[in-house]
Amino acid sequence: MTKTPILQIDNLHAGVEGKEILKGLTLTIHAGDVHALMGLNGSGKSTLAAILAGRDGYEVSKGTVTYMGHDLLDMDPEVRAREGVFLAFQYPVEIPGVNSTYFLKAALNEIRKHRGQSELDAIDFLALVREKMKLLELGEDLLKRSVNSGFSGGEKKRAEIFQMAVLDPILAILDETDSGLDIDALKTVAEGVNKLRRPDSAQLVITHYQRLLNYIVPDHVHVMADGRIVKSGDKSLALELESKGYDWILKSS
């Protein structure tokens, strides 16, 4: 008996302004699994992430995306978020003047409302925040500042994973979370992500380098080139890629 997958992408063709970027991408993600999506710059990884999260401006010309048995592409981005989809941005966006804690509380309460749960008050929310903060060794002062405003590259990435910890998604998509992190920060973030692994949720970890996969150990590794997945395997594929380079795959595929 097979369970309903969390995410099922079937022959997805999509582009922007008439330019096709995804050219027949197929990928299935089951609960409890961590998938790594690798590929050279420009292969379409961020485009896939944006389409999954529901960013405006992409045209899907062919294929389907099913999330927990429902048509994902039919949902507004905020509905996807409330249904448990979370995207950790490659380039997190600054929102000056909007307090980080306030922002995150508003987001969490939208999600809780959607799930029929009661909204958290300031006290309960703060308790939750403190607990999750330990996970990422995040300084409390970051939360007093405006959303991502003036954060260093590393702080932004950590703040993204912190949001993920608080919002507790079913499908987390991490877009190049490792870029801009030094090795210590990378370890902290990776440990945080690992602690968030649950049997009923899944992670899609997008990365360019194998480095992150030393700490977040994937169950499946996919290599993307020119808008589609050209090779899939287990974690050894990432190592192979590291030693042989992308050329090897691109030639053999």
Partner: peptide, 11 residues
């Protein structure tokens, strides 16, 4: 900015 907020569940 709007998409970022949307992606966190905000209308």
């Amino acid at each position: 900015q709007i998409f970022y907020c949307n992606s966190r569940g905000l209308e």
